[in-house]
Design a binder for these strands. Structure first.
Lengths: 220, 220
DNA sequence: GTCTATATGTAGATAGAC
DNA sequence: GTCTATCTACATATAGAC
C-alpha cells in the first residue's frame, strides 16, 4: 500500500458554509478515531458514522484515506509548531536564553494544550506516538515535525558550540519521547509510583528538570 | 472488538516435531509483521504468506488473531525480563548498587539484544512502542512489562528513601520512553544531528548518562 | 497436522440520481 | 454537495476431506 497522495485540485469556486461544516465534522471525527485506533484500525465507515455523515461524503471531502490521515496529522502539527516558535522568539527578545529556557519553549506549549486545550490535544499525542512508531509514516513525520525540531536542536547547539551536535540531537530525541510519554502514559506513572501523593501541576516541572539535566549530562 | 482470549486447552499428546516447526515459523512471521505494521495493519493471510504456510494453519496453531498477538508480545518480554532481573541480582551480589548501576541493569540487556541479538530484537522495540501507544493493549502491557518495571522502580526508591516515589516512577517512565526512542528512532537522531561524526557504540552510554542525570534531577 | 473450500462480514472507492 | 447503490477485493474464521 502506498501513502503518497496527489495535491488538491484547483477549486472552481469557494465552498459553501455547509460544505465547510461537513468537512470540519469529518476531520474532527477522523482525528478522534485515528488517535484512538490508528490508521489501520479505523475505517472510512467508522469515520462517517462518528461524523454523522454518509460514507461517500468522506471520500468526497477528503479524497482517499491516506490523504485524510495526512491532513489530520498536519493540522495540529502546524498549530503546535507555531506556538513553539513564537514562544522561543518571544523569549529571545527578552535577552539571552539558556538550555532550560529553550526546552521550556519546546515542551510547555504542548503540555499546556494537552491540559487546557480540550481532550483532542491529549489524543493527538497518541497519534504522534503512533506516527513515530510506524516506519510507513516516516516521511510524514519528517515533514510535520522535523523543521521545528531542527530549529530547537540548532538553538541548543549554539549554546554549546564545543559539544557534539549528534549527542545534542540524541538528548533532544529522548526528551521528545519523554514528552509524549508524559502525555500518553500518565496511567503508567500512576501504576508504578501509585503509593505516593499525586504530583498534579508539578508534573510538567518534573519533566523539564529531567530533560534539562539529561541533555546537559549527555553532552559529556 | 475484544482482546481477551481463552487459556490454551489441555493437550492430549505431545506435539510432533513438524508441528513445533510450523508453530515457530508462524510466530516468527507474525512477530515481523506485527512489529512492522501493527495489529490492524497485519492480516492472518499476510502472516500465513510470510510463514509460507496455509491460512488455516495459522488459526489452528495460534487460535485467533488477538491470542497470536498476545503470545508474540509475551514471548520476548519474558526473555527480556529474565535478563534484566538476572543482571540486577548479579550486581547486587557484588556489593551495594547506586542509581547508575540499577538503570544500567535495566537498559543494557535490551540495548545489547537490539545490537547483537538479531534484527528481530530491534523490530520488537517497535512492537513495544506500538503496544504502549494503544490504549486497547494496556492490560497486555501491564501483564508483560509492569512487574519488571515495578521491581526496578522499587529498587531505585530504596536508594532514595526520602524522595517522592511518584517522581521516581515518572523519571523511570521517561527513561523507558528514551530507551525505545534510542532503538526505534536512530534515523531521527541522524536527521537532526547529522552533521557531526557518528556516535557508534557510545550511543548507549549517552542514553545512560541522560537517564541517570534526569532521574536524579527530577527527584528535586 | 495439514489442506481445500467456503461462509460471512467488511474494507475502500466510485458511479450516477437528485 | 449530498445521497443511494454497488463493485471488487480482502478480512477472519471454520468445516470437513485427507
Amino acid at each position: 500500500m502506498e501513502f503518497e497522495f496527489t495535491p488538491e485540485k484547483q477549486r472552481l469556486r469557494a465552498p459553501s458554509l455547509r460544505s465547510l461544516e461537513t468537512r470540519a465534522k469529518i476531520l474532527d471525527a477522523a482525528e478522534r478515531l485515528f488517535a484512538e485506533r490508528g490508521f489501520d484500525g479505523t475505517s472510512m465507515r467508522d469515520i462517517a458514522a462518528e461524523a454523522e455523515v454518509r460514507v461517500g461524503l468522506v471520500s468526497h471531502h477528503a479524497g482517499n484515506k491516506a490523504a485524510l490521515f495526512h491532513v489530520v496529522v498536519a493540522r495540529r502539527a502546524d498549530t503546535l509548531a507555531q506556538r513553539r516558535i513564537e514562544a522561543l522568539e518571544a523569549r529571545k527578545v527578552q535577552g539571552p536564553v539558556d538550555l532550560r529556557a529553550v526546552l521550556d519553549c519546546f515542551l510547555t506549549p504542548y503540555l499546556e494544550l494537552a491540559r487546557d486545550g480540550g481532550p483532542q490535544w491529549m489524543a493527538y499525542a497518541r497519534l504522534v506516538a503512533y506516527v513515530s512508531a510506524d516506519a510507513r509514516w516516516r516521511s510524514l513525520a519528517m515533514v510535520c515535525f522535523d523543521p521545528t525540531a531542527q530549529r530547537f536542536v540548532d538553538e541548543i547547539a549554539s549554546l554549546y558550540p564545543r559539544a557534539s551536535k549528534r549527542r545534542i540531537a540524541a538528548g533532544f530525541v529522548y526528551s521528545v519521547a519523554g514528552l509524549l510519554a508524559q502525555i500518553t502514559s500518565g496511567w503508567r506513572v500512576e501504576a508504578l509510583g501509585g503509593e505516593g501523593p499525586r504530583m498534579r501541576v508539578a508534573d510538567d516541572r518534573v519533566l523539564l528538570d529531567f530533560c534539562v539535566a539529561g541533555i546537559e549530562a549527555s553532552m559529556g
